[in-house]
């Protein structure tokens, strides 16, 4: 049997993504260390990330409510394998902590990095607080990570 023949094709594509209006406002708020959620007029659920409609009620969202940069750790993991960072094309260094955080004032949870990467020191129900970067760019990683409060 002959050796397999491979045709090598390299993909190099880029896309220009428009920011949804609600996301643009949210990102502008981050530059001032302000977090806001959108509340559904039907079910009352306060959404992060902000989006055009409540998926459960199919109602447009327009009612902004303030959200704290502190909340409750609802789920956590420690990632041991480096994964691709799609914005840089480089691998993200491991291990790192990852959590779902329910910020005070929001009903959905926010997926974000945790300062802590020792499983023995992480637990559901812990209070956590955002650690902001010095330079704010108006993006969700203006929050470097969340740290567990003593």
């Amino acid at each position: 049997m002959s050796a397999p023949v491979h045709v090598a094709l390299e993909m190099d594509q880029s896309w220009r993504y428009a920011a949804p209006a609600a996301m643009a406002r949210f990102c502008a708020g981050l530059k001032e260390r302000r977090i806001e959620a959108l509340r559904c007029g039907g079910c009352g659920r306060r959404y992060l990330p902000p989006r055009p409609v409540c998926g459960n009620c199919h109602l447009p969202l327009a009612d902004w409510v303030p959200v704290a940069d502190e909340g409750r750790l609802e789920a956590w993991t420690v990632v041991h394998v480096p994964i691709l960072d799609p914005r840089t094309g480089r691998m993200r260094e491991a291990p790192y902590g990852m959590g779902l955080v329910r910020l005070d004032g929001a009903d959905t949870t926010l997926n974000h990095f945790l300062a802590q990467s020792d499983p023995a020191r992480l637990a559901i129900g812990q209070r956590v607080r955002a650690v902001w970067r010095e330079q704010l760019a108006g993006a969700i990683d203006d929050i470097r990570h969340f740290e567990v409060l003593a």
């Binding site: 993504y17 428009a18 920011a19 949804p20 209006a21 996301m23 055009p52 409609v53």
Partner: peptide, 8 residues
């Protein structure tokens, strides 16, 4: 607009 806004 973003895709979801156009679709909505």
């Amino acid at each position: 607009r973003a895709i979801p806004e156009m679709v909505l």
